[in-house]
């Protein structure tokens, strides 16, 4: 009970951070949207994907990219709470200890979902269409949420372990670029062997494939299970390491 009360109070506090600094949503949205515009209207005509609608093809990758850049802010929020002594203040109070971290994780996921909805709305304007049923849409959303959860734990490690704000957000850069070396924008079979092996065995490819198949209403169960396994594995490792850092 106390855990819920404390989490609610701390969640409300962090939500105000997000609402009062719109840049956390805007910067997170602008870059993936710009890449989406670039790929659809500049490169898109020359890319042979086998799909008749390139927006449909690349939307999952763009969403993962925005989620990755969004978690950088989670990391920065954690870093500044530690740096400003707010963690010390809260931890010296009779509150439920886990509520501190849970509130950060929840806010990370909520702001990630907001970004996902904004980008999907822009994609709809650009011609994104889906014939997925409600259950398939919810499954796609669940996989995305699990991905947010997994990356948030990496953000926890970075935020609590970093020595500077830049260090706290730097962990997200490779994650933001991971979709480029995956099936997110082009099919992997045109890539050189070594790159292809990497691309086909990194989490982004299976997550992109899973979401793409769900949005096309032809669920690829194999990709869905593999992506869930990846997200759970990353979360567990992140959680275990994050506890130690703390």
């Amino acid at each position: 009970m106390k855990m819920l009360r404390d989490t609610y109070a701390l969640f409300g506090r962090l939500l105000k951070h997000v609402l009062r600094s719109p840049d956390t949503i805007i910067t997170v949205t602008i870059m993936p949207v710009a890449i989406m515009l670039l790929f659809v209207y500049v490169f898109g005509g020359a890319i042979e994907t086998g799909a008749d609608n390139y927006v449909n093809y690349m939307l999952p990758g763009i969403l993962l990219m925005s989620i990755a850049s969004g978690t950088a802010y989670t990391s920065v929020r954690l870093f500044s709470d530690r740096e400003k002594g707010l963690f010390a203040r809260f931890n010296s109070m009779p509150i439920s200890r886990s509520s501190l971290l849970i509130a950060h994780v929840l806010v990370s996921i909520v702001s990630g979902l907001v970004t996902v909805f904004i980008i999907t709305a822009i994609a709809l304007i650009m011609g994104f269409r889906t014939n997925a049923g409600i259950l398939q849409l919810l499954t796609a959303l669940a996989v995305l949420t699990l991905f947010m959860f997994a990356l948030t734990w990496l953000a926890v490690i970075a935020g609590l372990g970093a020595k500077s704000v830049d260090g706290a957000s730097a962990f997200s850069y490779p994650l933001i670029f991971l979709p480029f070396i995956s099936s997110a924008f082009v099919p992997t079979d045109t890539m050189p062997f070594a790159v292809r092996v990497f691309a086909e065995h990194q989490p982004v490819t299976s997550i992109v494939d899973a979401i793409r198949s769900l949005l096309c209403a032809t669920p690829a169960y194999n990709a869905i299970w593999v992506s869930i396994a990846w997200c759970v594995a990353i979360s567990v490792v992140g959680w275990l390491v994050g506890r130690r850092v703390r």
């Binding site: 109070a9 506090r13 400003k84």
Partner: peptide
């Protein structure tokens, strides 16, 4: 109650919100 070396206040909240938050956490 601990008042640390550097003011541990949430600069993104108002003064009132800061105090109310602590009051809520203290039940």
């Amino acid at each position: 109650s601990l008042t640390g070396q550097f003011a541990a206040v949430d600069t993104m909240l108002t003064g009132r919100e800061n105090v109310v938050l602590i009051a809520k956490l203290r039940g």
